[in-house]
Structures are given as structure tokens and as C-alpha cells.
Simulated assay, not measured.
Amino acid sequence: MKMPFKAGVWPIPKGRVKLPEPAVSDYIIPSTATASSENYIMAPDPTVTVSGDALTYSLDTTNKKITVKYVANKWSNSSDYVAITFPMDFTNILPSDTLILKFYAYNQRSDSRTLVQDGNGNTLLDIHNMTENVLKTYTVPVGDYAGTQTDIIIKVWDNCSSSSHSSSSSYNVMTVYYPEAGVRALNATDNDTSTIWHPSTTDPGKWIYIDAGAPKIISGVRIYWGSNVPNKFTVEVSTDATNWTPVYKQTIPPTPNAWQEIGFYATYARYIRIYLDDQGSDPVEIGEIQYYSSLVERVASEHGHGSGPEPWMRGANVRLRYVSKFANIQSRISSLQRDLQKSRTVNVKHVQELTGIVQDLKELVKLLHMS
């Protein structure tokens, strides 16, 4: 007869379990990222000119924004606009870098317009009828300006051609945030493969890491590589962003402009770092980094599968089939919760399902303790 579970009797190796292969939808987009270098520039304070007498502005140099406003009891037309000129220095940007523009529109009219041009009058963006009360972000390629200096001019119109648009007090039309050019680490976590992060140089040892927000059971990472890929790279994990453990190493270049899914043994970590051992001749480009973790895997790890926060010592016969069984129970609990929220009453069917779930949980605990 098998003896009941007793902690410390049969330790199993940590980090030697690979969890079931995830679907693309199982990967999680992190909210933050940090890199060894962020090659970007923020626009300096602008000069602002006003055409006509229907619009005015306020400049907030602390929060890096300009708010365009109506003048009370004035109607604007096509000759009324605010022109905001940012002298941009693109000397140190790379051909793959972008210009990042952010606008927040208020009370936009059907004939509103925002025009973005360079110092030579070339149009970079021409936006009509911007959505109200929504922060909109636009990215514009500026690789052609690499190594140069040029003005970026943003003109804001908001035509009020009838008396119904007049007002006894001024009110906001649009907030224009200072442009940024280059790349930030957060480009790798914005769910947009067209915005990239790259190091400022091709030196080996550059890195970027994502933050899962809290320690979790991590068993995979998904990377979108841009046009320039590394010759060699390492995936590392950490709980404190200081001490790193390698979980995967690749010594051949990945496919450019494509996703790469990487699985590794389940491990307890909060941070996942892509360490560039050899970038090659050009700075590596990374469009997105996502990771794989879920509640099921966390519970499994805490019961001896992998290296959880307090790994339980289990017998060698513990099998990942328990993970599948737990997943089934978890799914049934979620379904029961939805039914209860929808009906707002408890019926016989709910009681029967809950009884079945409790019984399955008892059997699962028994199996784990007897393994």
C-alpha cells in the first residue's frame, strides 16, 4: 500500500517539466519592458503661431503638450489655424526608426483637420475628422531624415462656419503632445509588429526584458523579429531583474520578419530577457515579445511540476495528466460561475454540478497525495 504524501521524502528535480504547447491566443502581452538602451529623442519646446482670431493655445512644457482652444464668440474658417513647429534633430536615428505623434481631440467638427509636414512642406500625415475624446497615436517612418535636422510642423484647424458653433467661453479643440522619434523598449509590448525596439549599437551584450507584473510560472516566449536578426541570442528569466538564469540558447539566426515561438521547462519567474550574444552587422530589431503562463500551470507547479514558489516534494510517478484534470475542473467552475451570474438564482442543476466538481477535486487531491 502506498504511504500518504510526506514532504521532503522524494524530491524531484526543479525545472524539468515542459507544459502543454500553447496556442497563439494563450500568449500574454506584457505591459512594460526595459532595455539596455533606448535610442529615441523627445522634441524640444516648439514655437507656435496663430493664424486668424478664432483659435488660441496653451503651452505646457512640464507635461510636454500644447492645447489648442477656441476664442469665445468667434467662428473659425479655413484661414484660422494653429501651427506648432518642433525643430527635430534626427542626427542619431536609424533608417528603421519612426516618428511617434499623439493627439487628443475635443469637440471635433466634421470639417476638422490636422496636418503634419516636414520643414520642406512635405506632408507626413493629413488627418480629417479625428475621433473625439480618444488619444490617438500615429507612427510615421522618418528613416529618410536620418543624419539630418528638420522641422516637424503640426497645423490644427477646426472650422466653425455657423452661429451654432459660437460659444460664450473658450473651450478645448485638441491637445498635441510633443513628438518622439526613434525607438523605446515599450515598442516591443504594444501589440504592433510594425513598431520595433533595437539597440543603439551592434555591440554584443545588449538586451531587452519584459515584466510579467508578478512572479508566475513561465514556460514559453514568443518573439517577433524584424528585418535584422541576431546570429546568437539567449532567453533568460529572473524573479528580481538582477539575477538571471538562461532557459534557452540559439546559435543560428532566426527567420527575419516572422514570429518565433520558444518553449522551455516551466520555471517560476517575473522577468523574461532576450540577451543578444551576437547581433551581427546591424542592430537587431524586435517587434514584439509575449510570454506563456496560466493559472493551471501555476497550480501544477506548486504541486511538484516545475519550480514553483514553494515546490512541493512529490514522488517520481507524478504525471502531467493531473494538469489536464485540473484544467477540466477549472473550466467547469468558470462555466458554473457564468450560469449563476446570468440566472441569479440557484437551481437543482447548479447544485448537482457543484457536487460533481467537489467530488472531482477530492479525487484529484487524493491522486496527488498518493503519487
Rank of each mutant, 00 (worst) to 15 (best):
residue 255 T to V: 14
residue 44 P to N: 10
residue 156 V to H: 00
residue 286 I to G: 01
residue 267 T to D: 09
residue 17 V to G: 00
residue 185 A to M: 02
residue 287 G to Y: 06
residue 162 S to V: 14
residue 151 D to E: 09
residue 216 K to N: 13
residue 368 L to N: 09
residue 14 K to C: 07
residue 90 F to Y: 15
residue 145 Y to W: 08
residue 364 L to C: 09
residue 234 T to H: 00
residue 92 N to C: 05
residue 27 Y to W: 11
residue 281 S to P: 05
residue 136 K to D: 11
residue 87 P to T: 10
residue 13 P to H: 07
residue 337 Q to I: 13
residue 228 N to Y: 10
residue 3 M to N: 13
residue 291 Y to E: 03
residue 272 I to H: 01
residue 366 K to S: 15
residue 67 T to C: 03
residue 185 A to Q: 02
residue 71 V to D: 01
residue 360 D to E: 15
residue 25 S to A: 15
residue 110 S to C: 01
residue 31 S to K: 15
residue 116 V to G: 02
residue 220 G to T: 05
residue 364 L to S: 10
residue 352 Q to T: 14
residue 115 L to T: 10
residue 133 N to G: 05
residue 320 L to D: 09
residue 293 S to G: 07
residue 329 I to M: 15
residue 216 K to T: 04
residue 280 G to L: 09
residue 103 F to G: 00
residue 206 K to T: 08
residue 187 N to V: 01
residue 80 D to N: 14
residue 145 Y to Q: 01
residue 131 T to Y: 09
residue 338 R to D: 12
residue 127 I to H: 05
residue 116 V to S: 03
residue 57 Y to S: 04
residue 120 N to V: 03
residue 287 G to R: 05
residue 362 K to P: 01
residue 104 Y to V: 05
residue 68 V to A: 04
residue 4 P to M: 10
residue 313 M to R: 08
residue 303 H to R: 09
residue 43 A to F: 02
residue 280 G to K: 01
residue 367 L to P: 00
residue 87 P to C: 09
residue 206 K to M: 03
residue 250 Q to P: 02
residue 212 A to T: 15
residue 267 T to N: 10
residue 222 R to M: 11
residue 55 L to Q: 03
residue 236 E to D: 12
residue 336 L to T: 11
residue 137 T to G: 08
residue 197 W to M: 03
residue 339 D to Y: 08
residue 149 Q to C: 07
residue 94 L to K: 13
residue 137 T to S: 12
residue 296 V to F: 03
residue 262 I to T: 08
residue 221 V to K: 00
residue 335 S to N: 14
residue 99 L to N: 05
residue 174 M to D: 04
residue 67 T to E: 11
residue 86 F to A: 01
residue 71 V to P: 01
residue 256 P to M: 12
residue 233 F to H: 09
residue 106 Y to L: 07
residue 70 Y to L: 06
residue 237 V to F: 04
residue 360 D to W: 06
residue 197 W to L: 03
residue 104 Y to I: 05
residue 139 T to S: 13
